[in-house]
Amino acid sequence: MQPNDLDRIAQQIRLRDLQAVFEAGAGHIGGEMSAIDILAALYFRVLRIWPDQPKHPDRDRFVLSKGHVALALYVTLAKRGFIPEEEVATFLKPHSRLNGHPNCNKVPGVETNTGPLGHGLPVAVGMAKAAKLTGAAYRTYVLTGDGEMQEGSNWEAIASAAQFGLDNLTLVIDHNRFQQGASLKDTNNLAPFPAKLEAFGWDVTEINGNAMDEIVPALEKRGSRPHCIVAHTNKGHGISFMQDKVDWHHKVPSAEQYQIAVAELSEAL
């Protein structure tokens, strides 16, 4: 699948995500919009996966460590055939499989339960290490938020990944520069990330994380060390009034705002 097609898919995922947030009256729309291009590239180009065999031992692993953007993952999994597309409408409804954070024992395609931040990367290190021990060819990808990198557990895992020589592991940091209550810069500013990761023994690639022609080559890059992609993204990407506004971490659009957002995303299709 080529970048143009992936862009179209990403916009379709954005539209469905927006609609589900509006209808459910909840979600983490800012961080969903920033991450969706990366999810589209992974699920429609990069990952070796078989939606009808979600536990296939040779599948590539993807861990959504920023579990609060579960909705974006559900829409992507539905579009890719892991769950019925109509099921997205059950998001957050009583007894729906589609909780506010992904559940690997209920939703096919989810590898491990996330929600508390700083959990996905250590688990992904274990997955990549298992492949090294068993000789499996699968690769492991994990997506974290930039604010999430404040969790110390990530740095335990970063050190372990380098020690174990996990060249089969790719960490993508969704660097949208905002966390729940303020900007990263005004909270606990870990940026710039590259020198820190390099100092731990990782390869680092910086990209525009909302540009498909940069995302795909970065995800497909192979080296001899664990790989971190620092993906510069925009919180609320694709919806003008949300973009780079801290308020839109988990705000829900009004009916009027919803119409504007739908129009903008539809135009981009």
């Binding site: 031992p57 692993r61 590898e111 491990t112 959990h119 990367l121 250590p122 688990v123 992904a124 290190v125 274990g126 997955m127 990549a128 290490k129 298992a130 492949a131 021990l133 068993t134 499996a136 492991t140 557990s153 895992a157 372990s160």
Partner: peptide, 11 residues
Amino acid sequence: GVGAGLANGGL
């Protein structure tokens, strides 16, 4: 966390 990932990888 690494233990959980190793189990996911079939160990």
